Simulated assay, not measured.
Amino acid sequence: MQVLAVLEKSKSMVFTGHSFGGSIASLYALWLLCYLHSSSSSIPIFCITFGSPLLGNESFSRAILRERWGGNFCHVVSKHDIMPRLLFAPLLTHQLHLLLNHWHLSMASQQIGNPAGVLQVPDEDKAEFLRFVLAYLERSSQLAVEGERREMFWPFGSYLFCSKEGGICLENAVSVIKMMHLMVATVSLDECIMDHLNYGDYIGNFSSQFLKRRNFMQGGLGPCSSYEAGLALALQSSGLAWQIQGKKLDIFCSSSRHCDS
């Protein structure tokens, strides 16, 4: 009911979430799209997830595509993050129980500022689990290419794969699964978990690169700090940047003085 109350005052709505929160955000967005479809409303709905597990099988994905809702979802996946790849492996296994214990230890160690907590699970167990997931991920990649997909979890929407070097966006589900496999072929489980926590850095890099490229194409100067980058993105998204393009440099200088003070 709170979502519907907010919706009455909104021109659009964006859902977002990290890890399992991304799955919840996707479900909320799907529910709202169904609700708006039945009420003949045209309010734009968009969902952005970060390191989210997959939600359903190919039939589920096809149902979303049939309603033309695929473009409402963008799933950001970092290069080595294991969470979006996890459900290609069987769920009720000793290995999954092992991962969950390791995952809780790792996340807790990050929250309290103690990275050494990541090492509380024996290396042999971590290596065993990673081999287990990668084996099923490779098998799923092969089955996706061969067309045997009935029981598999299946992606929907657009996928933005990101790393420190840049990113690539894919919409074809088979290509998404193949990319998920290829990008984690030679990593450790600790790297996979640490990468699950680095989305803020990746998005910051993307924002900076986007602004620099856009300003270069327009013959302007790019922002030189995260504060300026955020200000520039806000202005561009609101449409004000075009009205004050000639004063852009003055705005950046003013923001720098504001930060220094």
Rank of each mutant, 00 (worst) to 15 (best):
M1N: 11
M1K: 14
M1V: 14
V3L: 13
A5S: 12
K9T: 07
S10L: 08
S12F: 12
V14R: 05
F15H: 04
G17Y: 01
G22P: 08
L30A: 05
W31E: 08
C34I: 03
L36V: 04
L36W: 01
S39C: 07
S41A: 09
S41G: 02
I43R: 09
F46E: 05
C47K: 05
I48K: 04
T49W: 02
S52F: 02
L54P: 00
A63S: 09
A63I: 06
I64E: 04
R66I: 01
R66F: 06
R66V: 00
R68G: 00
F73H: 03
H75E: 01
H75M: 02
V76K: 00
K79Y: 06
I82R: 08
M83E: 05
M83W: 03
R85S: 11
Q95Y: 11
L100Q: 15
H104G: 03
L105H: 05
S109K: 01
Q111F: 09
G117A: 06
V118R: 11
E124H: 04
R131I: 00
A135G: 02
A135I: 00
R139S: 03
S140L: 00
Q142H: 01
R150Q: 03
M152A: 02
G157M: 04
C162S: 09
G166D: 10
G166Q: 04
A173D: 09
M179A: 15
M180C: 12
L182F: 08
L182T: 13
T186N: 15
E191M: 12
C192N: 07
C192H: 06
Y199S: 10
G200K: 12
G204V: 13
F206D: 03
S208Y: 10
F216Q: 14
M217C: 13
M217F: 12
Q218N: 08
Q218D: 10
G220W: 05
P223D: 15
S226Y: 08
Y227F: 14
E228N: 11
E228V: 03
A232Q: 13
G239W: 08
Q243Y: 08
Q245A: 13
L249M: 14
S254L: 14
S255N: 14
S256Y: 15
S261W: 06
S261N: 10
